[in-house]
Design a protein around this nucleic acid. Sequence first.
DNA 1: CCCGGAACCTGAAGGC
DNA 2: TGCCTTCAGGTTCCGG
Length: 278
Amino acid sequence: MPELPEVETIVNDLRPSVEGHRFTGVSLFWPRMVLRPSADELCQRLPGQVIKEVARRGKYLIFRLDSGESLVLHLRMTGSLRLRSKNDTSSELSPYITAIFGLDSGQELLFCDRRKLGTASLIKDVSEIDNKLGPEPLDPRFTPVILRKKLSSRKAPIKAVLCDQKFVAGIGNMYADEALFYANIHPLRPAYSLSKAETKRLHKAIRQVLSSAIDNAGATFSDYRRPGGEPGRQQYSFYVAHRGGQTCKVCSTPIERIPVRNRGTYFCPRCQDSATCS
DNA sequence: CCCGGAACCTGAAGGC
DNA sequence: TGCCTTCAGGTTCCGG
């Protein structure tokens, strides 16, 4: 599932080959992926526009266009973007293509999505996306003091709060579990109950986990691929995420899996003390 | 504001 | 073998 590090990797990979190029056409095979304006309108308005910049905000990919509008994509759970040459007939077609964006570079950008939950929007003002998201966890403005203040009003399990995009942007199921392991905090702890020291550890853990994953081009468990088709490498470094039944790399205790807000949550019952869980 | 649950999707996995 | 159910999880919407 693409989270912040995966989307960051995709943006970095895409940047050199799409920035400065022009969209030549759009083919939609799953028009319902377009949230707004309408599928027809997006197909009319996108062609001819130059991509000034590709950026990431939370888990959103943002293509800033010369008209001032932005094409905003979200991969949700199984979406991926692939870049290929228009005359490349050798590579096998993914059976799950939901959209093809033609570029004047001779390449095309494929949106592949097994479960068709991914979305595309053409919006006038990017601040629309910005306003509904919490701070970027790697931004210097996201400090331990701010984290502590935000946690203080939250009663929900810390795991659920970390996955809330309005709380902090870009963290999903995998990296929330990893960060809590790094910080030795049990996923069910009420957010407000974290001590100052624990909050500081969590802040550091969030940054370490995300930075390391970016260095390793993201984690591939199922559908995530880089635009060139390569998988990520971060999955090999995970301590708890998707490691149910295996043993903790630190203390050899079996990794447990419990539901938190209906999300599969992995943790080490020994390293992540539950003494102060309510 | 905060919280929890349903809906959106469909391939994979497990039960019988 | 094959049908059926359940699970996976990011986001949005809705009700308390």
